[in-house]
Amino acid sequence: MAFSSGGEGPMADINIIPLCDVMLVLLIIFMVTAPQLSYPIDIDLPQAAPPQIDRVEPPEPIRLRIDASGQLYWNDSPTPLSALRNMMESEVQRDPTNQPTLEIDTSEDADYGVLAKVLAEAKNAQMQKIGFVRK
Rank of each mutant, 00 (worst) to 15 (best):
A34Y: 02
V118E: 08
S38W: 08
E91R: 14
M87R: 14
A48D: 01
Q71T: 15
A116G: 00
L19M: 04
N98F: 01
L45S: 00
Q36H: 10
P78V: 15
N124T: 01
D111N: 14
R134V: 07
S82C: 07
Q99I: 15
S107H: 13
D105W: 12
Q71F: 03
L72A: 04
G7Y: 05
L45Q: 07
D111M: 03
Q128R: 02
T106Y: 10
T97N: 13
S107E: 11
L84E: 02
Q71D: 12
A116F: 13
Q126R: 06
L119A: 00
I130Q: 00
G7Q: 10
A48Q: 05
A120K: 05
S90N: 15
K135Q: 07
P59R: 07
L26W: 06
I16T: 14
S82M: 11
R63F: 11
Y112G: 14
K129M: 06
N15W: 11
N98Q: 02
I16Y: 13
I16V: 15
D109F: 07
V92W: 11
D105C: 06
N98C: 07
D76M: 09
N98V: 05
L27K: 01
T79M: 15
W74Y: 15
D76N: 15
A2G: 15
V118I: 11
A83I: 08
L37E: 04
P78Y: 09
A125R: 04
D95G: 08
G9N: 11
M23Q: 00
T97R: 12
D109I: 06
I62S: 00
T101W: 14
A125L: 04
V133H: 03
D76P: 02
I14M: 07
N75P: 12
V56R: 05
I28L: 06
A122Q: 10
E103P: 02
F3P: 09
E89V: 09
Y39K: 01
G9L: 08
Q99A: 11
